[in-house]
Computed example of a mutant assay.
Amino acid sequence: MENHTAILIQELKKLLNGGTAHVGFAAAVSGIPFELLGERPYGLPYSIWQLVSHIRIAQWDMLEFSKDGSDQSLQWPDEYWPKETAPASEKDWQNALEEIDKDLKAFITLLDDRDWFETIPNGEGQTILREALQLADHNAYHIAEIVVIRRLLNNWKN
């Protein structure tokens, strides 16, 4: 049974890092010209910057909740979506990408350190496994939106 657990851990890590059945986050945001980050083509409701910011905020929230359940959830939807359509500077863009990477690595560390099936304190029955699957699903959904926007802006490789 231990071998099955190790296999499951590896598969969950692959899922969280993306890129097995779809484009991963790093590939989806690689090489985007700064001036395109705030574009919302064809009346789409979000820019790439807003999607990346939303991924960052939601992922951070899931990480903090998963640590011990003591974090206070943000107000939906206002605190999960930035109002600005573009980053103020390239440094803000790079900081957002670094925070996403750092928080994802921290979440993946929880998979090694915690019992996946134990209920998270102060939650409503959530487990680390549920949060890991939710995080992977959430990120994949919005990564696909980033790719679509890049295609609409003629800034995608395929």
Rank of each mutant, 00 (worst) to 15 (best):
L8M: 10
W93F: 14
H22S: 15
Q94K: 09
L12W: 07
W93H: 12
Q10I: 01
K91Y: 13
S73E: 08
T20S: 14
N17F: 09
F25A: 09
F65Q: 08
A58Q: 10
E11W: 11
T85R: 11
W49E: 03
P77G: 01
V23D: 04
Y80F: 06
Y80W: 05
W49M: 02
R40H: 05
Q50K: 05
R56L: 04
E2V: 03
L104N: 06
F34M: 11
L63C: 08
G31K: 09
Q72A: 13
I57W: 00
Q59V: 07
L16Q: 03
S89C: 00
R40V: 03
A27Y: 15
A88M: 01
E84Q: 14
A86P: 12
S30K: 14
Q10G: 07
H22A: 15
E2H: 02
E99H: 13
D103Y: 03
Y80H: 07
G38K: 04
V29L: 09
Q75W: 15
G38P: 04
I7W: 03
E79C: 01
N95V: 11
L15N: 15
H54A: 04
K83G: 11
K91R: 12
H54F: 02
H4Y: 12
P33L: 10
A86V: 05
L16K: 02
P87M: 12
Y80A: 00
Y46M: 13
L44P: 02
L8K: 01
L12P: 04
A21I: 07
D61M: 11
E2I: 00
G31C: 06
A86I: 05
E39K: 15
S89W: 06
G31I: 06
R40C: 11
I55P: 02
L51G: 09
F34G: 13
K105A: 08
L36V: 08
A27T: 14
E98A: 11
G69Y: 06
K14C: 15
T20N: 13
G31S: 01
K102T: 00
Q59F: 10
P41G: 00
E79P: 12
I32W: 06
Y80N: 04
L16V: 00
I9G: 14
K91C: 08
N17E: 13
L44D: 00
V52Y: 01
K91V: 13
I48R: 04
W60V: 06
G19C: 11
Q59S: 05
Y46V: 08
A6R: 01
S73A: 12
H54E: 07
L97C: 02
F65D: 03
K105E: 02
S70P: 10
Q50W: 07
